Computed example of a mutant assay.
Amino acid sequence: MKKQFIPFMFVLALLISACSNETTSEEQNEAPQDTTETITYESENGPIEVPADPQRVVVLSSYAGNVMALNVNLVGVDPWAKMNPKFDDHLHDVEEVTDESLEKIIELDPDLIIGLSNINNVDKLNEIAPTVTYTYGAVDYLTQHLEIGKLLNKEDEAQAWIDDFKQRAQAAGEEIKAEIGEDATVSVIESFDKQFYVYGDNWGRGTEILYQEMGLNMPERVKEEALEPGFYALSLEVLPEFAGDYVILSSDGSDSSFQETDTFNNIPAVQNNNVFEVNLYEFYFNDPVTLDFQLDYFIDSFLEN
């Protein structure tokens, strides 16, 4: 029988080809694949692709509490959020950053950045991660939380909190009005950096709860000066004109000397022990974490006063 010989070079070519195919297959299996799912969020600046399940969020202004309330991981937040004692447990290991901390933000490797529309370096931030900004007051405070919920792909959770919060706040408002009287007025006054401010119904400090949800009355002078712009700066001399039957007094704690003056002590709310003092840094925002704290505080203060 005649033997058949396979040429050596042909065999070698087959071996090389097989090894090459095996290596290519292994490389394909080992190569990292970008499987991150995204959603399209309709921001005020147009549609933007963002992670469907963000894992490393940086908030540069205002919205840290909204993100925390939806149980999404934060890796960086603004200085005001870090100063809030009520956020301490949530933000203990979270870095403090600003819109100028570009190198620090890069190191944090965020997959989403959130801030107000007036932050700096938006173009550069967008190169780091999808960056979504909001204009403060463009929508009401509850709609704002719903928008954050949409952005984080947690719209249902955000809506559920909104529905529950409105029910709780409005029910508490009815109890408080029954306690203090339908005609009683409430002012939200702040002492900050040796200046006084009075607030309308949409500028944090509990104003949304008191006026929008509970339907409590705002003094006429406050309506005239603060309702439309949101806040109004005033002096100690005219403070009595803006003080309601009840006063929520927000302070940064830097100067309480005004509380020793006759002007302050002659205010009826002061004389009637109807001034409720709060920490500015705890009351500053209007996110769900802060709003729940504010609501509990108002229930305790008005109903146990």
Score class of each variant (00 low, 15 high):
L112K: 08
D252C: 03
K82E: 11
P54T: 02
F264Y: 15
V11G: 00
Y297A: 10
F5L: 09
L216F: 06
I248M: 04
S20V: 10
G181D: 12
D111I: 10
E225S: 14
G115T: 04
S257A: 13
G46T: 02
M83H: 14
M9I: 13
D123A: 15
N66L: 07
L234G: 08
L112I: 09
V57Q: 00
S62N: 15
G181S: 14
N66G: 07
N202S: 15
G149T: 08
I113T: 05
Q212H: 04
T131A: 03
V270L: 03
E22R: 12
I209F: 10
N272H: 11
Q33R: 08
S256T: 09
Q4W: 11
E127K: 15
S101Y: 12
F283P: 01
K124D: 15
K177V: 01
F242H: 03
S117M: 13
N272A: 11
A129I: 05
G181F: 10
G149Y: 12
I148E: 07
S251F: 00
N120V: 05
M83K: 15
Q170A: 08
G230D: 08
I6D: 00
A172D: 01
E190H: 03
D287P: 08
L102P: 03
I248F: 00
A69P: 06
D252K: 00
D201T: 11
N305S: 13
E225F: 13
E157F: 14
C19Y: 09
L152G: 06
E44T: 04
P85I: 10
V278H: 03
A18P: 11
N274R: 14
Q55A: 11
F192M: 05
L236P: 06
A184D: 15
Q294E: 15
D252T: 00
L239G: 01
E155T: 13
V59A: 11
Y136R: 10
E174F: 00
E182V: 15
G46E: 03
I114T: 10
D255K: 01
P130N: 04
H90C: 04
F283I: 00
V222H: 11
E155I: 08
S256C: 00
I39M: 08
Y284C: 03
F231G: 02
H145S: 10
Y297W: 14
N66T: 07
A269I: 01
E277R: 05
A64C: 07
G137Q: 07
E103L: 14
H90G: 09
L14G: 11
L102C: 08
P54C: 05
I248D: 00
